[in-house]
Amino acid sequence: MKEFTYYQPKSVDGAIGLLDAKWGKTELLGGGTDLLDLTKEYVAQPDKVISLTGIANFADIQVAPQTGKGSVVLIGAGARLAAIADHAHLQKIFPALTTAAGMIGGPQIRNMGTLGGNLCQRNRCWYFRDEHVHCLLKGGQKCFALDGENQYHAIFTQGHKCVIVSPSTLGPVLIALDATAEVQGPKGKRTLELAKFFFAPSGENEREHVLAPNEVVLSVKIPEKEGTRNASYEVRQKQSYDWPLVQAAVAFKADGGKATGVKIVLGHVAPTPLVVEAAAKEVEGKEVTDAVATAAGKAAAKDAKPLSQNGYKVKLVEVAVKRALLTAANPGKRQYWEV
């Protein structure tokens, strides 16, 4: 690990004042689980590391009841994944979020990792994370995964020079729940829909999100909608301590047995979380039956353009979407795939 100067500001302004306007020289430290990996591999070589753990209220989770229309939930960017997963009220209204947060890494990772870190972490491509590989995202000429070892890479590859998958598991859920992020930079605060938060990078001056190098995520706001049903389903190789091969996050309003306002978002299959409107259309206005959920799964996977080694993920998309929909439609029911 290259040496650096460490800062622990007590305010967001203090942190922003230290951040460089270009990527590379400065890094924010939340839980450290991603940044320390990157610095040990010399993939990140910051001169300054700015810790966000000294900022007051940065890890708060607040639930504010709104008159007559459910509540608004505000989660500080410094909130640990374990705190989100274990939050009793969130478990009740946003099972998609608490399930997803509770499956990230193992207990140690969840005690360390933060919401902001999960949204802003770097991708898991093994070429990118190898110090000795000069790939597209490190200023190189070529994405080595395109015709290399790509079994865990994107299957929705259209228009992408770099075929990483978005590493965030909370991102797809928050998009499905219509969440917004509050972000602060040198010019002040702005509110960003989570649906517009992520970005498909193709060079060393780009990241997996749209934030400027001197912007900080403050919090994420999720509106609770009356009668909302939501779920996240992951297909993975291992039951624990694994990245999802495919994730589907769904949310809809249960309107007298019919699903309306359907959102279906895929994770870990494209360089950004992927909103699949064609799949949502299959469900809109209908009762979520096995047949409807199956049709939605097929529609979600239809446009996939897998690489040489990851065609298997296309079928997993069908399964994940179907199971997420059935889970959301039947809260508390033991499903046939559960052991």
Binding site: K10, S11, D13, G17, N57, F58, Q62, K189
Partner: peptide, 30 residues
Amino acid sequence: GSGAVATAALTTPVPSLLHEAAAQKTEEVV
């Protein structure tokens, strides 16, 4: 570090996190 960034006037979002931190206008971070 130069933490001298003026804080924008606090609008009142519902609910508000970080008001304590935001109230601190400038901070010299060692």
